[in-house]
């Protein structure tokens, strides 16, 4: 199945960049023939991915590591009956376990359990200084209706590279 690239970006992610990337995806979506609700789903998940990256973007200094490691990547590929969102960003090793535990826990839940988990979280969470409510990952799994596939590659004793893939099926 041939891949059609909707987005392929590697570089600095700040609030301004996110707006540029979202506009670009909106422009492409305005001309491709895919169900509007699927486009919206892909867009929504993309926002959560980018905001998650942004919230953790200051954890690794570009003085200490190469461009490839410090700067995040995001791609959106249309492939047959699905869209594939892939992201990569660095994170500190001390945060690795928390993240993988969260994803592993979410991946085990079915839709009803995810809704319960979301409800429990939204009731009990406070908006953090970084503007996060801790709901982004749950939202991604709920909206994609698929597990988050991920891989973590340790770079050194301080940091690792986190890569995730999210698949969004077009209308069943």
């Amino acid at each position: 199945m041939s891949n059609k690239v909707v987005l392929d970006y590697h570089g600095l992610i700040d609030f301004g960049t996110i707006q540029v990337l979202l506009r670009r995806v909106k422009d492409i979506f305005s001309i491709i023939d895919v169900d509007k609700s699927v486009k919206k789903k892909v867009f929504n998940i993309m926002v959560e991915c980018l905001e998650n990256i942004l919230k953790h973007s200051n954890e690794v200094s570009f003085y200490d590591y190469d461009f490839d490691i410090v700067y995040p990547k995001i791609s959106i590929i249309e492939n047959g009956n699905k869209f594939i969102i892939t992201t990569q960003n660095s994170l500190q090793n001390i945060n690795k376990e928390k993240l993988t535990n969260s994803i592993d826990a979410l991946n085990k839940l079915d839709k009803e359990q995810l809704k319960k988990y979301y409800e429990n979280r939204i009731f009990n969470t406070q908006i953090s200084e970084k503007g996060g409510a801790g709901l982004g990952l749950i939202d991604i799994v709920l909206k994609s209706e698929n597990n988050i596939e991920y891989n973590i590659e340790q770079i050194d004793e301080k940091i690792s590279l986190f890569k995730q893939t999210i698949i969004i099926l077009k209308k069943k």
Binding site: E48, E51, L135
Partner: peptide
Amino acid sequence: EYFNSSSAKYIL
């Protein structure tokens, strides 16, 4: 049309 997960908390 769309709200992100942080906005959801405020909508609630």
